[in-house]
Each structure stands twice: as C-alpha cells, then as structure tokens.
Amino acid sequence: MTFFESISTVFRKYADFSGHASRSEYWWFVLFSFITTAILGSLNLTSSEGTLDLGTSLSTAWSLALLLPQLAVTVRRLRDTGRDWTNMFWILVPLAGVIVLVIYLTQPSIPERMTANP
C-alpha cells in the first residue's frame, strides 16, 4: 500500500473499528499524522503586538480531528496481529507501555484463519 492509498483508506474507514489494517496502512498514516501536525504546529502569524501562535491552535484542532481515525486504524492493526483492542491500554504505562505497543504494531500480519477474533 502506498502513502496516499493509506491516507485514503484510513479516512474512508474514519470510524470503522472492524476488519484489519496492514503494517503499511498503519505506519504510512502515522507518518502522515506526524508530518501534518508538525507543519501546522510550526505556523506562526506575526502581528503588531508580537507573535500570535496560530500553529498551536491548528495543530491541536488537527490532532483532535485525527483522534478517531487513529484509534480505529490502531484497533484494526492490533486485530491484524492477532491481538485484542484492549492492548491499546499499554499506552497508559509510562515508557514500557509505549515500547510494548510499538512492538505489537510492528509485528507481521497473522493470516485470518489463525486469528481468534475475525
């Protein structure tokens, strides 16, 4: 799956928590999210009173808009590796949880016949 196909697929399945997401679909979308958030966060408008930090507002709004599709594609990716959606709670454990979740998300897909939750 290419970069643009991944973005299109994730936005088409905006709130679809069923099915599976390939590694490329997930990680291309993570890259897209990171790049767009960083670009929006770096925008600044200069006014006569000083600098107005429009970038933070845009970046925050964009991150909130991406929250639901990011959660959905993460659940689909976990399902593709044969894990349940509850593994997302690893993110709540400082540092070690992030490492565990990244390891889960980078593992190869398991064929559907072996998956416990279709």
Rank of each mutant, 00 (worst) to 15 (best):
V100R: 09
S6I: 11
K13W: 01
M88Y: 12
S22G: 11
H20S: 11
L40V: 04
I39E: 09
L95T: 05
T106N: 07
V98P: 06
S8E: 13
M114W: 02
L68C: 07
L43M: 05
A61T: 12
V98W: 06
I91M: 03
A116C: 06
I7K: 11
P69L: 09
F32K: 06
R23E: 14
H20W: 06
T60K: 05
S109A: 12
V100C: 04
I7P: 09
Y104C: 03
L31Y: 12
P94F: 07
R23M: 13
Q70A: 15
F32H: 04
A72T: 12
D84G: 03
F17P: 08
L95W: 03
A72G: 14
T36Y: 08
E5Y: 04
R113L: 06
R77M: 03
A61I: 15
T46D: 13
S22Q: 11
N44E: 08
V102Y: 07
Y26A: 04
W90K: 01
S57K: 13
T74N: 09
F29W: 02
A15T: 03
L66D: 05
S47Q: 09
Q70I: 06
F4L: 11
L68I: 13
L101H: 01
V10L: 06
A21I: 00
T2W: 00
G82C: 08
L58M: 08
V73A: 10
W28N: 15
M88S: 10
L54F: 08
V93Q: 05
N117L: 06
M88D: 03
